[in-house]
Amino acid sequence: MIRRSRLAGLLHLWPIVALVLLWDVWVLANGYTSIVAPRPWSVINDVVGNPDAYAIDFLWTLAISVGGLLLGMLLGTIAAVLISLWAPMSAVLTPAALIVRSVPVTVMIPIIARVFGYEVYTVLVVTVITSFFPAFVLGLSGMASAPASSRDLFVVFGSSRPASLWRLRLPYAVPNLLLALRITAPLAVLSAMLAEFLIGQQGLGYLFIVARSYMEIDRAWGTALVATMLSVFAFLAARFVERRISPRFT
């Protein structure tokens, strides 16, 4: 039983294997030199052989992504709660949220950098902004999904507004917020990387620029590889959390 499930687990990795093989075939078929595109083996070798070179920047990007993700989702949830407690708040928050949403992150980053300075925490700000919107929108619709009969019941039992929020609307929003987490987790990694690439002085995005400018091609590609793994890991971790917790609320 166990062996079979392990085997099934390994089978799930086929896209990665296929990707690596395709990558190699692509490099060979086009006859690229290692300056244009290195072969996967030398990139993997660089990552496995020099973990120290990646470790600090990896941990940095991980910390910024997770921190920005949680902070952004928290702020998004708080904004949704404010609106659900006091409807006029919607007129203030919704347009702002929509503007933030409709401007692409790539455009936003230089502007944010101008405002906040080319600092480390500007990267965090970018990640927070990316993580805000899904939690805001999905949190709002989750709270609105509490059935009318339950809301009536709370009124009839003399519930206070905070109690209705805490005991009814927020629990109804939990599955939606976990969905937001799953959607946002890889995005948070992506926007942290992008911001580091454009304005950072730390992290995988920054490591990529440095490696490229020194023509360390294996290192530059290795950074992309590590970032991809981080992103996939973020998604899998979020999905794990969602699958564990969501059923308890439905």
């Binding site: 059935p147 009969s149 339950s150 009536d152 019941l153 009124v155 009839v156 039992f157 003399g158 005991r167 009814l168 629990p171 308890r248 609320f249 439905t250």
Partner: peptide
Amino acid sequence: LAKSHRLGVAFQEHALLPW
């Protein structure tokens, strides 16, 4: 009466909290 928690109601829909 509702505000002072002295009303007991069972509606047509049971309205139980699923969690």
